[in-house]
């Protein structure tokens, strides 16, 4: 089990508990504003873009090349950007804080 906190663009903090699957799916199931996950998690739409809290980068690791190429062409990308469909929920993500991209 992992507790994951989402901070939405209107500064709401929502903490969810997840057991498996992707972080994107957890967010979509719980109606987190700003995470749409249009493509269902195959890395083709970038509607699940999040910024990882700097202190949590070690938990998520780095984006794959395909994910990084996708992020490179998103306007709101920075060094903390990830596509949440590519983050698989595990105990390692417990305590993770994510800011939903604009």
């Amino acid at each position: 089990m992992a507790k994951i906190t989402f901070i939405t663009s209107d500064e709401q903090r929502i903490t969810l508990e997840g057991y498996s699957g992707s972080v994107m799916a957890l967010a979509v199931e719980n109606g987190i504003k700003g995470i749409d996950g249009d493509c269902g998690g195959v890395c083709s739409c970038a509607t699940c873009h999040v910024h990882v809290a700097p202190e949590d980068l070690s938990k998520t690791g780095e984006a794959s090349e395909i994910e990084a190429d996708m992020l490179e062409l998103d306007d709101d990308t920075d060094q903390y950007s990830r596509l949440s469909c590519q983050l698989q929920i595990s105990e390692e993500l417990d305590g993770l804080v994510l800011r939903v991209a604009k």
Binding site: V42, S44, L73
Partner: peptide, 13 residues
Amino acid sequence: DRKINPHVGFGFS
């Protein structure tokens, strides 16, 4: 069941 599929079938950007 292709898992990573950065297709542009709906366009891009």
